[in-house]
Design a protein around this nucleic acid. Sequence first.
DNA 1: GTCTATAATCTGATAGAC
DNA 2: GTCTATCAGATTATAGAC
Lengths: 199, 199
Amino acid sequence: MSAITTALTDWEHVQPPAARRLLTGAIAAFAERGYQATTTRDIASRAGMSPAALYVHYSSKEKLLFEISLYGHKAALDVLSSVEGSTPTERLQAMVSAFTVWHAEHHTVARVVQYELAALSPDHLAEVATYRRSISALMEKVLADGVSAGTFQVDDLPGTALALLSLSIDVARWYSPARQPPEALGSLHAALALRMVQA
Amino acid sequence: MSAITTALTDWEHVQPPAARRLLTGAIAAFAERGYQATTTRDIASRAGMSPAALYVHYSSKEKLLFEISLYGHKAALDVLSSVEGSTPTERLQAMVSAFTVWHAEHHTVARVVQYELAALSPDHLAEVATYRRSISALMEKVLADGVSAGTFQVDDLPGTALALLSLSIDVARWYSPARQPPEALGSLHAALALRMVQA
DNA sequence: GTCTATAATCTGATAGAC
DNA sequence: GTCTATCAGATTATAGAC
């Protein structure tokens, strides 16, 4: 597990602890009810503080969302880019599996990353959009490699890449830990993905 | 096109016209910014009315959301259940294609249907949940039929059915008419779906 | 760095005239 | 059935004491 992925798991890089409590409280609240339905009082009370204390650590509610979204996007990109494998087949399976596992394991953060983009300021949205384009590019690259090698047969490359990402991203919408372990879901999606593109 | 699907396209069954203008305005607003970020003033002004006029036609903002969500769920179920085909292969392709086309063509309503469930009251959520279970059951049925007939090979039936639905549902998240016609996307998804389950 | 208190604004919804 | 006016409460954010 890379440094950034480990960091996302415990958020220990967010200092001081009060700022971390606010951030993890905000993640839980945003994932549960959405950004707009979450109040600063709600976030502060989850962190055991008064509403005013939030503004010592974050200049606004939107800035808190941005911190979560930015770090979440970095972690999601890291998960895809740190995959290893000597063939396109191996890499595609590892990518789809890891991306699905991440969306299941971190489904609260993933929900904020995937469904609260509209609440970001234009500047902040532009910044996370660069990470989103990198994620799409990685998926398109492995498909192109497989086509070149003759192991994949893909008619619509951008469309197929988007469909593969959809499979993992949509996990954030419905996943609940009670349903199944993330790894089982990752294996299923990796197998389905391979069948979708195999020559 | 069945009666309910035609009706969803123009909402002519919503009477009087003032109620319809409020409802279509609410769909646009909810899809654009989400339910919580949309104000009753916003909805009313899109319909060319004062905020107070909304309450002559709908008893609350949540009731308006429920009307949209309920009818949207009915239409989505209708799209899946009115599919024809003599073999599981034909029916699966037609179902995935039609479900994807519906989510692209009606991506504003679909966004409300798929992403605003948390804003519904417990009673209203329970009512739309019955439609959601029917949708899942239809997808699981066609897979089971294909397995029985020997044309499909499916290891995890509920998981694969959910993955197939995900492919279409996630369209509501990213679709923009500028990107591609709904039918092209439907064909792509139908082809990918078939490869996912073919024996 | 946290608190209490509060400013300034916005929210869903209602009252009553026309 | 639509309007203007408004209520009662909630919202983000700030001021100033400790």
